[in-house]
Design a protein around this nucleic acid. Sequence first.
DNA 1: TCTACGCTGACGCTGCGTCATGGTGC
DNA 2: TGCACCATGACGCAGCGTCAGCGTAG
Lengths: 251, 251
Amino acid sequence: MSRTYRIREFAELAGVTVRALHHYDRLGLLEPKRTATGYREYCAKDLEALEQIVALKFIGLPLGKIKLLLKRGTGDLASALRAQRTILDQKRRLLDRAIRAISEAETALQKGNGVDSEVFKHIIEVIEMQNKTEEWKKQYDLLVQGKIERLKAMSPDVKTQLQKEWSDLLTDIGAALNEDPASPKAQALVSRWATLMGAFAPAEAVDPELLKKFGASYSPSDWPDGAKKPEGQAADSRIWVFMRRALAVRK
Amino acid sequence: MSRTYRIREFAELAGVTVRALHHYDRLGLLEPKRTATGYREYCAKDLEALEQIVALKFIGLPLGKIKLLLKRGTGDLASALRAQRTILDQKRRLLDRAIRAISEAETALQKGNGVDSEVFKHIIEVIEMQNKTEEWKKQYDLLVQGKIERLKAMSPDVKTQLQKEWSDLLTDIGAALNEDPASPKAQALVSRWATLMGAFAPAEAVDPELLKKFGASYSPSDWPDGAKKPEGQAADSRIWVFMRRALAVRK
DNA sequence: TCTACGCTGACGCTGCGTCATGGTGC
DNA sequence: TGCACCATGACGCAGCGTCAGCGTAG
């Protein structure tokens, strides 16, 4: 049939490195024939296989999965593509946030206001923003779900009262941002917060672990009829950072 | 002053893992005081430092650079941010292409036309597209620069002649896509191609290595007054893949 | 004394890059 | 005979995760 290639030539042919071909060979991804003296001998079929490997690698599939995909039928190819796209979408969102964080930091630097601390705070804003909207959202929604229902079932008087308590609490926290999270003042705020959380669900449903994990990651203002933020955008994020810390210190 | 924390608590306080703190310690990024028995003892200042580390890590800076940035002044912080944004922008473009490649592959799968080969070809299209527009662009532009100037300086007759030769060559290549890149037919096409390239620059400027590396990565149709593609979008990419291979085989 | 937590190695993971050492092809 | 090319280890990198084996706090 058509000619064969030694590894060097074959690598250039396909646009990969010799080392990569060695690697794929050892992984069992692409194992060419060997000459009597052990030289690898690649043919046209190997080129097709390598092309597929390169293609799947390009979309971010790990070599292990590529191996499985190519050795088995095409059945899972579709699902693999779907899964990979989901992963890439997540990566892109992360990237976008990182880029935005840099932009924020750069404008903060140009304004030359604070020394450095301001710069980092801007980045942290974006990080927290992510945490709120991405990582914990799903699971936290589960936790919150029951509370909203209870909220709806409450009398208007109680609702108004709860709203005021939330609002007051947030104001107080905003005024205590410079406190040590371990201080009695901060811990008192945590207690008030935990109590308010507890008002929305039966006591046994208020898992302290859950509270610690997700509690501070979400604003009550996300809830219908929730309390309004006492201050501007900036205070928002710092409040939840503070509460997360204070919760971490809490037993 | 304010209280100190042992590693576990401090980790929760900051939202990182104990292992990460160990790691940062060993790297010299964040080295807390130690108790008499060797326990790490973190304080409020360490928390600030860790926050900065986390922030810089979030935007993708490697720990080594973070260490340098935090130990030195803020002078290079601005440039580090710029550099990092450039890197992230590149990453994002790559990600977008990978995502598009998956989309193409999925539609190809749904159409159910070809078995698999079609699917991979679509991905490869996107990869080649990237190679053309990203990786080699800058350096290739340097190579092409002189050629364009020579082209402008040519007489209209010669220009027309060259355009025709390019067009013919591309047509011939398009008709030979199924040839073995090592075949005499393919190699003859490579020779014609190299000759045409050479017509744009003095012979000594046509480095064969450069030719091999960048020659097939760019379409002559990118040039002003360049030849038109003989066929549709799809043929375009396959032509350059074929030529790259044929060039790789060439001595 | 029991138990949770702290300490220091050390290997694993991902995809090769980069020697180092020694055999082959022409 | 020499020189370019091939082969097989083996370490390195980035950022921790995950034991393992052993001391410490309370």
